[in-house]
Every structure is written in C-alpha cells, then in structure tokens.
Design a protein around this nucleic acid. Structure first.
Lengths: 145, 145
DNA sequence: AATTTGAGTTAGTGTATGCTAACAATAATA
DNA sequence: TATTATTGTTAGCATACACTAACTCAAATT
C-alpha cells in the first residue's frame, strides 16, 4: 500500500535530512534548523513525528538517518524539486535562487499527473530541436496519457 | 504601499467570494462553504478576518461583497489561477479537473517572476507557429527580463 | 577528571485553521 | 402572523506548527 502523504512542512524536513545526508553522510539538528530557517526545538518536534511515522531512525541526542521508506519518499520529493527547478531555470529563464525557492514550494502541492507531464514536456523541449517539431505532434505524443 | 500577502487559506476564501460574486452577484456563507468544502463556522471565521483586514464588506447575517482592495487582490489571484490552469490544460494536456485543482494550489505559492515568465511562455507557445521558431530565439526574447 | 561550550530536548505558549454543538437571525410557508 | 426551515454565528475544542526559555547531554578544552 502507498505511503500516506506528509504535510508540506514534514516534507521539507525530510528533504533537508536527505540533502544533508547526501552532502555530509549525516544530518544534525542544527544543520536542519539552519537549512529550513527554524529553531532547533522545531526540528526536534519534526524528528519525533517523522520517527513515529517510520521515515527516519531517531535516537535522542544522536544523528538522524533516513529509513528505506524515508529515503524513497525523500527521493521522490527531491526528484520533483530538481525537475521543477530545471523547468524554471532552463525553459523559463528564471533566476536561480527564485527557481530554487519556488520549486521548493510547488514540489509539495503538484499532483503526479501534472508533474509527469511537466517532466515529459521538459525533456521533450530540451532534447528536441524545436524548429523541426510541430507542437501538435508533440501534444499527440505525450498527451496519450 | 503594497498589500500584505494573505495566507493560502484566506486567498482561497477571497477567491471563492470573487467567483460567487461574479456568477451570482453575491456571496453567501453556505455557498462559500460548499465551494471550499469547509463548514459554515469556518467561513464566518474567515469573513471576520478578511473584513478586519479590509478585503470585504461584512455585516453579520448579510451578504458579503469585496472592497476595492479585495477585488484587486482577488483579481490577481484569479488571473494567476486561470493562466496556470491554461498552461496545464493547453500545453501539458492535463485533465481539466486536475488542472483546476493544481492551479488552485500553485497560485498561492508561485512568485511574480516565475508567474510572469510562465505567462509569457504560454502566450508565446500558443500564439506562435512553433515549427518556425527556434527555442533559443524564444529564450533570448522573453528572457530579457 | 573537571569544566566549559555547544547541541539537543522539554515544557509551555501563540497563531492559524479546521471542527462540532448549541444558539440566533432571517426567510419561507402554513 | 405563527411556525418551521434555513442560514449564520458563537463558543469551545483539536491539530499542526512555530517560538522562547530553561534544562540536559555530549564533546572539547584545560
């Protein structure tokens, strides 16, 4: 069965842990707090909840790691993040920081169908010499589903 | 000076009032509750807050109307809504209901720069015979700012 | 080993938002 | 007009999430 969707806030925590873990091999409360611009006590709160729900391994006073479930979830969020950001920067020519910020907000609310199609569209535009392509052909292709 | 940003939730209420007002010439609590799938008491709550902040004219037990400030704000939100939805349906070929729903979520979090560029991109693609256009030329044009 | 410093936690508070249940006002209708 | 039904409000409660202040633990330094 599928994992229940987390709140925007909890997805942010999970993603922060994911990124720190990737960068540093570990995630400390202070780093998470800095990254998300919240206080350490808020982090503790979130960690307890994420642990309860089985997304992280958490023992008081020690470093946090993602469980398999947590890793899978975070991976998906992060993939969305990267893709949306890429659309903003590469296609829309949005400023890097703004793209980062907006991707971070939209990744939590976009549905699978919309994301998948955006993703397809992005790849299509990037990989294709658009001068040789008719937009209707494009739509027929990726619009099949 | 610019109007302070409302929460997602309050923007939803304002937009609902706007839509009902446009459709029906007036907005009743029950209709707002139905549209947003919340209870009437939650609507009352929101109305009080929106009235305090000067977005609506509100007297107990009577119909609600938007102030000029409220109308302006709602107009902007609704314009975003329509544009984002149009991108999803017309370009990404997303299902109408899903597009509606996602536009409704993204309209609250997207920044001006990203929205403006998306908007421009949408018009560009729709209005141009894409076969005759090079994507780099396009980017040069609308990417100027 | 004792002390100091920094990291992490807990407890308590505040705000935003939703809910239910009980009540009040208005509108519809008998 | 009196009654009933609908609509709207209030009060009280619950949840999510952030904060501060006070505390505990662990690591680093002496």
């Amino acid at each position: 069965m599928s994992v229940k969707k987390l709140s925007t806030s909890m997805e942010d925590y999970l993603e922060a842990i994911y990124m720190l873990q990737t960068e540093n091999k570990s995630a400390r409360s202070t780093d998470i707090a800095d990254k998300l611009k919240v206080k350490k006590s808020s982090v503790t709160n979130a960690l307890q909840l994420l642990a309860e729900k089985g997304f992280i391994n958490y023992d008081k006073y020690s470093e946090v790691t993602l469980t398999d479930k947590g890793l899978k979830y975070a991976d998906e969020v992060y993939f969305k993040h990267k893709t949306i950001k890429r659309f903003f920067t590469n296609i829309l020519n949005v400023d890097e920081a703004v793209a980062e910020d907006n991707a971070c907000k939209i990744e939590h609310v976009i549905d699978k169908e919309v994301f998948d199609k955006l993703s397809y569209f992005l790849e299509f535009i990037i990989s294709t010499d658009i001068t040789s392509v008719n937009i209707e052909k494009f739509k027929k292709e990726y619009g099949k589903n």
